[in-house]
C-alpha cells in the first residue's frame, strides 16, 4: 500500500513534469515560429516593395506615405523598360541573356560530362594529376584573370561577342567535380554489360551514363544557368555595344539614366523583368538547385 502510494505520487509528478515539458516545448515552438516569420518578412518585404513600385506610375512614385498597393496600377513601366530607346531596351538584353545562358548550359554539360567520364571510370596515365589540376581550378577566383582575358579576347578580336561570355565559363572545374561524383555512384554492371556487347565508350557515356546521371546533370544545368544569368563583372568588361549587353549590365546603365530622372517605377519594372526568369527556373527546379549547392557550390 505504501509502495503503491509513493509510486502514484511519482507518477503524478512525472506526469506534471511531462505536461509542463510539453507546454514549454509548445511555447518554444511558438517563439521559434515567430522568429521564423520575422525572418521571412525581412527577406520578402524588399522584394514586395520592388514589385509594388514596378506597378506604380512614375509621377506618383514619390508619394508619401508609401503605398504598398498602388492607387492606380499600371503596366506603363514595363512597356517603358522593355522598349526604351535610351540604351538598348530590356527586351534585347533579355534575349541576349537567354541566348548566352542556354548556350552556356549546353556547352558546359557536354564538355564537363565528357571530361568527368574518364576521370570517374577509366584508368589512364596522369589521371591523378589531371584531377588535381581540376581541383586547383575550384580555388581560382575567375576575376583575377579578367585583365588578361580581356587582353586575350581583344587580341583575337572577340571582344563584344557571345563567345566571350560563353567559353570562359564552359570549362567548369565545379561541373567536372560534381558530375564525376554522380558518375562514380552509378553501378558499373550496366556499363560493363554494354562494353561486353561492344559499345564504344562514347555511346556508353551518352546512352547509359548520362541518362542515369540526370539529377546531377540537371543540378549542374540549373546552377550554370543562374550563374550565367547573374554574371555581372565579366559582361560588364567585355561587352562594348549596348545591343550585346546582358541583363545585369543593361540594368546598371538603367540605374544611372532612370534614377537621375527619378523614374523609380521604370527601374523597378526592369529589375522585376530581370528577375522573373531566374525565379521561375528556381521555383520549378528548387530541389535540384538546392542540391547543387548542397553538394558543392560557388557563390560569394
Amino acid at each position: 500500500m505504501k509502495l503503491n502510494n509513493s509510486l502514484r505520487a511519482e507518477m503524478a509528478t512525472s506526469e506534471r513534469r511531462t505536461r509542463s515539458a510539453i507546454r514549454w516545448r509548445h511555447i518554444q515552438r511558438l517563439i521559434l515560429w515567430l522568429v521564423l516569420t520575422l525572418i521571412s518578412v525581412f527577406f520578402l518585404l524588399p522584394v514586395l516593395w520592388m514589385i509594388t513600385t514596378s506597378f506604380t506610375p512614375n509621377n506618383v512614385v514619390l508619394h508619401y506615405p508609401p503605398r504598398w498597393i498602388p492607387a492606380s496600377p499600371t503596366l506603363q513601366n514595363y512597356t517603358e523598360a522593355i522598349t526604351t530607346t535610351r540604351t538598348a531596351g530590356l527586351g534585347r538584353a533579355l534575349a541576349n541573356s537567354t541566348l548566352v545562358a542556354v548556350a552556356t548550359v549546353i556547352l558546359t554539360l557536354l564538355v564537363d560530362s565528357m571530361a568527368a567520364y574518364p576521370l570517374a571510370r577509366m584508368n589512364f596515365k596522369g589521371k591523378k594529376g589531371i584531377f588535381i589540376l581540376v581541383l586547383v581550378g575550384l580555388m581560382v577566383p575567375a576575376e583575377v584573370t579578367f585583365v588578361s582575358l580581356f587582353l586575350m579576347f581583344n587580341a583575337v578580336g572577340w571582344l563584344n561577342s557571345y563567345e566571350s561570355l560563353i567559353l570562359p565559363v564552359a570549362a567548369s572545374p565545379f561541373g567536372v567535380f560534381l558530375l564525376r561524383q554522380f558518375f562514380m555512384a552509378i553501378p558499373r554492371d550496366l556499363e560493363d554489360a554494354a562494353r561486353i556487347d561492344g559499345c564504344s565508350r562514347m555511346r556508353i557515356l551518352f546512352t547509359i551514363i548520362l541518362p542515369l546521371a540526370k539529377p546531377g546533370l540537371s543540378a549542374l544545368a540549373i546552377f550554370t544557368f543562374l550563374l550565367s544569368w547573374n554574371n555581372f563583372l565579366w559582361p560588364l568588361i567585355v561587352m562594348t555595344d549596348p545591343n550585346m549587353m546582358t541583363v545585369p549590365v543593361i540594368l546598371a546603365y538603367y540605374v544611372a539614366s532612370f534614377a537621375q530622372s527619378l523614374d523609380w517605377g521604370t527601374l523597378m519594372a526592369a529589375a522585376v523583368g530581370a528577375t522573373i526568369l531566374p525565379v521561375i527556373v528556381f521555383l520549378i527546379f528548387q530541389k535540384q538547385f538546392v542540391r547543387s549547392i548542397a553538394t558543392t557550390g560557388l557563390k560569394g
Binding site: 521571412s40 524588399p46 522584394v47 520592388m50 545585369p248 540594368l251 526592369a270
Partner: peptide, 16 residues
C-alpha cells in the same frame, strides 16, 4: 522566402 533573394540579379538587388 529565404532562398528567393539568392536568385535575384545582383544589379537588380543594387537598384532595389
Amino acid at each position: 522566402a529565404l532562398f528567393l533573394p539568392f536568385v535575384i540579379n545582383i544589379a537588380a538587388v543594387g537598384i532595389l
